[in-house]
Amino acid sequence: MIDNNNKPVNRRGFLGSCSRFIAAGLGAISVFKFGGSLWGQENGQYNPAEHNYAMGIDVHKCIGCGRCADACKRENDVTREPYYFRTWVERYVIPSEGETVVDSPNGGIDGFPETVDKNDVLRTFFVPKLCNHCSNPPCVQVCPVGATFASRDGVVLVDEKYCVGCRYCIQACPYGARYFHPESKTADKCTFCYHRITKGLPPACVEVCPTHARVFGEIGQLSSPLRRFVRFNDLTVLKPWLNTKPKVYYAGADGEVR
């Protein structure tokens, strides 16, 4: 499931290698120039072709505080109504008999009120959810105009100025990670905080996670914390049978998680 060449399939992989070649040949030319702001990277340049981002989530460490969901809404100015989330936390309660109960009141931002009879609980845990930034993204496949795409650094993004708002991508996402932004009238979703990661900062949800339940980085880089995470954990991804090849890896996720 995980390998160092976990680049998106077919065309993107080819493009990736092409662009790496070009980047090597024309080293001086850079596509991006970020001003020398407070967070600017050392050399002031960022080359997307050198990166391939992913995230790890350790279910055993998540305490369900919902700070990630809260920080995400603040960082990305997401509507605070409880129907729009780029990331949210689910609570799973598996009773000794009967159906698994899942809830996510306001995405977990306001905490999880006790609702179940403690004596009947077999297993219970929290699972943070977000866009899986699939290597084989069904949302990108169905976009009729090319308004959503996988960037060269492996992040699935939405072009707010080009999206026609047909919502096919929302239907095609198996994870419920996309929503229709009520103001921009376009599809919207997690960007891995693209504006932060390209400047060397972690995504907001990772920044505020108090227990390091979320690990952000690159599998391809030996020094990345994510490399260690995928090295020492048994990992699963969500709905692997759909062959979306998610890049959000879960450690310790129960079989009930979907």
Binding site: R12, W39, A71, T148, A150, D159, H195, L201, E207
Partner: peptide, 25 residues
């Protein structure tokens, strides 16, 4: 330029304002 999308959109998305400064700051 890089695929079936507007390459400048990537720059636009990357230029979003940062809200959480990060603990180093």
């Amino acid at each position: 330029e890089y695929g079936h999308y507007r390459a400048s959109a990537v720059e636009e998305i990357a230029s979003q304002e940062i809200v959480y400064a990060g603990h180093e700051a």
